[in-house]
Design a binder for these strands. Sequence first.
DNA 1: CGCATTTTTGATACACGTCAATCTCCGTGG
DNA 2: CCACGGAGATTGACGTGTATCAAAAATGCG
Lengths: 201, 201
Amino acid sequence: MYGEAQLGPQRFAAGYAIYAHSTPGAAWRVVSGSVRLDRREPNGEQNFANLAIMGDVIGAETLLLGYYSFTATALTPCLLVPWPVGCRAPASESLLHSMAKAERRAAEVIALRCGQAADRVRHLVMLLAQRSDVVSNEDSADLQVVLPPRQDMADITALTLETVSRMVSRLRHSGMLKPVVRRGCESNSTFVVRNLGQAPF
Amino acid sequence: MYGEAQLGPQRFAAGYAIYAHSTPGAAWRVVSGSVRLDRREPNGEQNFANLAIMGDVIGAETLLLGYYSFTATALTPCLLVPWPVGCRAPASESLLHSMAKAERRAAEVIALRCGQAADRVRHLVMLLAQRSDVVSNEDSADLQVVLPPRQDMADITALTLETVSRMVSRLRHSGMLKPVVRRGCESNSTFVVRNLGQAPF
DNA sequence: CGCATTTTTGATACACGTCAATCTCCGTGG
DNA sequence: CCACGGAGATTGACGTGTATCAAAAATGCG
């Protein structure tokens, strides 16, 4: 008997290939972290196709096809659990729920690719930012974010890694992003997010 | 008794508002034509969120929520039928099928927003092009396309309408798009598409 | 036919891409 | 412990593709 669906939560390190296009496997729900989905173009390239974050379901197409349509890669350290499992609600309702969420996520990713570079990067940061579990003592509105590598951020926003790097630097200087200090040096991927009076969107 | 789900196929003219965000209604399948979905931003604006073409299901979220999450507008004359109706397959399979298709469509729309302007417009044209029912006598590989207004094409590709207009002109001059003649004058929305040796995508 | 809307075309400006050099961070081995 | 090398990130200089602004042309509608 295959044990895939019975496996428990699974952790993946940043950059880790979670599953590959057209291989068999099951669906997962993203508990924490962020995942990029890529599709194989007719010419063989792998291009960014979608983004999954906390609460999103990935690989649902395997329930119908038996194999994955996309390739999934961990952008940041992430935790996945098999899906659907222990759904109290009927299967179709669970499906509808994740379908509705997927459509909203797709609309958000599409929105990440219009407007000026500064806004795109800022929106991406806000999308990835989560309420910080650790540093919740000082400012109640503070969030934390683990940014993916610059090249991945560039793929998501349809910018270049140089432009993304410049925009992240600008956000740091403006005070919106404050690097977290570990072992005496500032991380360039983990930040405290301070949403200073920016328009809610 | 409400008759929505029992209604038959329905036609919409280009530019017609099919349904509005947060109003009650049912789901539809697009039989022909193209539809844009918009989402209401926190600031009140309506922004392009997704594209639906032949075979896509729109408004599936109403099965769960009872109301629409997006606003739907006809980009070109289109024909919709209620969904799901007369599904021989079990409901969950039909759902999965449309979910998988929605994910692939989202990936395609995301891909329409990267690369150079010329490629983006060309890809959009190829996405909207259908095997022409009428003019199928001369060249077997010829397709036909009804282009949406330039402003809508601009919203979809994240370009400006001026740039889109220039790219369409360029495609016309390159011979890829040939305007259909009606009442003696060339249409600027209906074209015969000739995929001359361009890369398969 | 005349007016409003959409589309086309042109001139100019600038935001971002491109290319390249430098810097930081880590792991490896002497 | 430090030297070395590779990968990713940062910063700068410059060119270009597209946005912007503006005007004319084409189209559709009453």
